[in-house]
């Protein structure tokens, strides 16, 4: 265990509100699990009782106490997916991989876990593999998903990944397409909108891959700032009636080609989004 590294992670977040979650998140992504010694160390440094840290770490499904494999397969068992028989899908994964949820295959390739709602209920049952969403999964598609996963590179490689679904969106007011084929992001036409923040105005391009949060922006925006989104054609503000479930900032609606609405959070850096087909 690299104490200096853990020390660095703790020092980076210490004193901020919500420090515990940030520290745990960083530890999880660094080690792919939360080592016991690391947790004890964090308890000592932050002065929080170990029982509380452990309580938080077991509360959230994103944390794990065993090293995870190269790929992470999350089967949604939230209410909407459950009623569409996601349990059968989970069982199928268990059988095919011969592991239980929370376990990793002996070859350290695939970790299976179940989660409660990933925010795409209309497309359920949902299976998320390394951050990419597979909609309407049935028992029979499980094999295919696994084959593809095994043949893929490590996670977080959206460029080479044919599995995610790109969306095409339009302005909800003037219905002009917001796609920008000239400036692709991650190999797909990007979504171009105008944003304003304080005195700054500029162009923001978003990846059109659902599940990817890659963006390109004209100017530096401080993290956590809520920015205003405008249609670059009719200049109407894209402002939804709902607010983000994660951070309560207003949501920005865009109409999906072929029906449906996708809403993204207007807070810079927040990954809150809603998909309604």
């Amino acid at each position: 265990m690299n104490t200096a590294e853990i020390q660095g992670i703790v020092a980076k977040h210490q004193g901020h509100p919500g420090e515990v979650l940030s520290i745990l998140e960083d530890l999880q992504s660094r080690f792919s699990y939360l080592p016991e010694e690391a947790l004890r160390f964090v308890a000592e440094k932050t002065g929080r009782p170990l029982r509380d840290l452990y309580g938080v770490a077991t509360f959230y499904k994103m944390f794990s106490f065993r090293p995870r494999g190269k790929h992470l397969v999350s089967v949604c068992l939230g209410t909407a997916c459950h009623v569409r028989r996601a349990t059968l899908v989970a069982e199928e994964f268990e059988q095919k991989l011969a592991v239980k949820p929370g376990e990793t295959t002996p070859d350290k390739q695939i970790t299976l876990e179940t989660v409660n709602c990933v925010g795409a209920c209309a497309l359920g049952p949902i299976v998320v593999v390394d951050g990419h969403y597979f909609p309407n999964v049935k028992r029979t598609t499980v094999q295919k998903i696994l084959e593809r996963t095994r043949n893929e590179g490590p996670r977080d490689d959206p460029n080479k990944d044919p599995r995610i679904f790109p969306v095409e969106v339009r302005c909800p007011r003037c219905n002009h397409t917001l796609m920008d084929p000239e400036n692709p992001l991650e190999g797909h036409p990007s979504v171009r909108v105008t944003i304003s923040f304080g005195a700054n105005h500029g162009c923001l391009r978003l990846s059109s891959l659902y599940g990817s949060f890659t963006i390109a922006c004209d100017f530096e925006t401080p993290p956590d700032a809520v920015v205003h989104f405008f249609c670059p054609y009719c200049h109407a503000e894209l402002l939804g009636a709902t607010s983000c479930m994660e951070c309560a900032a207003p949501m920005v609606p865009m109409v999906i080609e072929g029906g449906g609405i996708v809403q993204i959070c207007s807070r810079y850096g927040c990954k809150g989004h809603l998909l309604d087909l």
Binding site: E36, L39, P49, L50, R51, Y54, G55, T58, F59
Partner: peptide, 19 residues
Amino acid sequence: SGAIGFQGRGGDRRISTPF
């Protein structure tokens, strides 16, 4: 003392010592 606490959530919620 603070030896025990809640762990997990939903149906998996339980009381125990860390680890």
